[in-house]
Amino acid sequence: MRDLNGKVAVVTGAGSGIGRALAVRFAAEGMRVALADVEQDALMGTAALVDGEVMTKVVDVGEEKEVQAFADAVFDTYGAVHVLCNNAGVFAGGELWSRPVADFEWVFRVNLWGVLHGIRAFVPRMIAQDSEGHIVNTASVAGLFAAPFSGPYTISKFAAYGATESLAHELAMNGSKLRVSVLCPGGVATRIDESERNRPHELKAEKTPDQEFIDQVITDTVTAGIPPEDVAAAVVAAIAEERFLILTHPQYGPGLLQQAEALVAGGLPQLPDFEQR
């Protein structure tokens, strides 16, 4: 889909980072944007940056009813959706055997169920439009390369990647006009290292040394990360080119080949350090 002007884009996790950059870029392309985030003030901050028509709604993407209500509001307002970005995400890490179930429940409900709720709420109506459209699900480079001390996050992102590839195949087999991309960013200057600010009280957990270690790694990574605006530009280009996999760093392509070779040989892939530049 090359012509975005006049079309409608939906972005979750739009209050900061990649979501905010997507909202601003889509508006610059002439799109009307519908934005959701769990943080009211952050969402309003993004809306203030949008040069164009915008609607907002506070949404917890882990709650199916809230995502369905958001979809209802978007279609009631604009009558159609042409680009859907299931982008909301959070981080929790630590050794798999040391972290409580609450960590997994929180991360899965946002990073995986947020994507699934978005698909189920929007895609049937996008199919019924019988027009060109594009779904972009945000996974992560952690959904391609498993890393230690990031179990909850990595598992959720591998699952988000799998959901996106399944969706792409299903739409293609049904002859749909919709196309699908999976966004796998690496180090980006976002606030994902501050995810705990939005963690539900009932899913809070005590920090352990292993988690404190990986939290510092994530902070260092985002501090040195690329601008979110670069990611938004890559997404717009991928939509135009109908590209499935969106990588944010050139090192990841060769890394995927190395990983595939290790797996075909029956070995454990080496730990990559793709953030080195």
Rank of each mutant, 00 (worst) to 15 (best):
V11N: 10
V11H: 05
T12N: 08
G13Y: 08
G19C: 04
G19M: 07
A23G: 14
A27P: 11
E29C: 08
G30W: 14
R32V: 13
R32A: 15
V33S: 12
A36R: 10
A36C: 12
V38H: 06
V38N: 13
D41Q: 13
G45N: 10
G45A: 08
T46C: 06
A47N: 11
V50Q: 12
D51H: 12
G52E: 11
V54F: 02
V58N: 08
V58L: 06
V58W: 06
V61A: 04
E64Y: 06
Q68C: 09
F70H: 05
A71G: 07
A71H: 01
D72F: 02
Y78S: 04
G79L: 03
V83Q: 12
C85Y: 00
A88G: 14
F91S: 13
G94K: 07
E95R: 15
W106H: 15
W106N: 13
V107I: 10
F108I: 15
R109K: 12
R109M: 07
N111D: 14
L112G: 06
G114N: 09
G118R: 03
G118Q: 11
G118F: 02
R120A: 05
R120I: 01
A121I: 03
F122N: 07
R125M: 01
A128L: 07
D130M: 06
A139S: 15
G143C: 09
F145H: 10
A147Q: 13
F149A: 06
S150E: 08
Y153Q: 11
A160E: 07
Y161S: 00
A163G: 04
H169R: 08
E170D: 14
E170P: 04
L171C: 00
R179S: 07
L183F: 05
G187P: 00
V188Q: 05
R191F: 01
R199I: 00
L203N: 11
K204H: 14
E206Q: 11
D210C: 06
D210M: 04
Q211F: 07
D215K: 14
P227L: 02
A233D: 15
A234R: 15
V235K: 08
V235E: 10
V235S: 11
R243C: 01
L256A: 11
L257V: 13
Q258C: 05
Q259A: 11
A260Q: 13
A262C: 10
A262W: 01
A262L: 06
L263P: 02
G266H: 10
G267H: 14
L268V: 14
L268Y: 13
P272I: 03
P272A: 10
P272H: 09
F274E: 13
R277S: 12
